[in-house]
């Protein structure tokens, strides 16, 4: 028996919108820790890891560990039927091949339930080692989204370079080149507007902008984004989800052949 009641149902709606472009089908894993997902994109260069901790749910019952295979586009279709202020409850019985999403309006005058078929998904689970990153950049998520969008109109890849001076996003294409430098800026009115760079050593890596743009679909989840870089390691683009957890995107760097 599984019953997860999320008062801020809009968070789940936003999570689905953030990942459904990257991943078609995925297993949601439910355990005492929380509701989580790990899935790779079809070309195996990007990975999404989601955690919504059990403490973030108003009611969290998970009698035994359960893995539920879902088509994310179908799940998003159902969750779009929930109002932004609705409370969402996810329910499943042991051994069932369906999951139920229940939507309650804030004043309880409308209650809807949507039952979705589950699917068997053979997913690879990757062990992600803890890494020491050469540079960690925290910046406003909207700014990062704007940069990725702007650069993708010029080129296909972005070079992210971190130095003491700041973080530089560069691209090149048929029509020309573009460089955007964001300097460390801690003296702002609100902490979420700051750009903060923690650098052990300079790092410069190249990534496909198509994936970066896909990651920025998570922008509505968090006002800030954290980009962790190390030479020859996948970049981690992390959006914190309120007090509940995170959504992390890993992307392998491009290498010269």
């Amino acid at each position: 028996m599984l019953e997860l009641r999320l008062v801020q149902g809009s968070l789940l709606k936003k999570v689905l919108e953030a990942i459904r472009e990257l991943v078609n089908d995925a297993n949601f894993d439910c355990s005492a820790t929380g509701f989580s997902l790990q899935a790779m994109d079809s070309s195996h260069v990007a990975l999404v890891a989601l955690l919504l901790r059990s403490e973030g749910f108003e009611h969290y019952r998970c009698d035994r560990n359960l893995s539920m295979g879902m088509n994310l586009n179908n799940m998003a279709k159902m969750l779009r039927c929930a109002g932004n202020d609705d409370i969402i409850t996810i329910k499943a019985d042991d051994g069932s091949d369906t999951v139920t999403f229940m939507f309650e309006s804030p004043n309880q005058d409308k209650i809807a339930d949507f039952e979705m078929k589950l699917m068997d998904i053979d997913s690879e689970h990757l062990g992600i080692p803890d890494a020491e990153y050469h540079a960690i950049v925290r910046m406003p998520s909207a700014e990062f989204a704007r940069i990725c969008k702007d650069l993708s109109s010029i080129g296909d890849t972005v070079v992210i370079s971190v130095t003491k001076e700041g973080v530089k996003f560069s691209t090149a294409g048929d029509i020309g080149t573009a460089n955007i430098v964001c300097r460390q800026n801690k003296t702002v009115d609100k902490p979420e507007e700051a750009t903060v760079i923690e650098m052990q050593e300079p790092v410069s890596l190249t990534f496909a902008l198509r994936y970066m743009n896909s990651f920025t679909k998570a922008t509505p989840l968090s006002e800030t984004v954290t980009i962790s870089l190390s030479s020859e390691l996948p970049v981690v683009v992390e959006y914190k989800i309120a007090d509940m957890g995170y959504i992390r995107f890993y992307l392998a760097p491009k290498i010269e052949e």
Binding site: S43, L126, I255
Partner: peptide, 14 residues
């Protein structure tokens, strides 16, 4: 030209 590395070359399979 440059190619994108596969994540499996960084992360181990569980």
């Amino acid at each position: 030209t440059s190619k994108q590395q596969k994540l499996s070359s960084f992360f181990s399979h569980k």
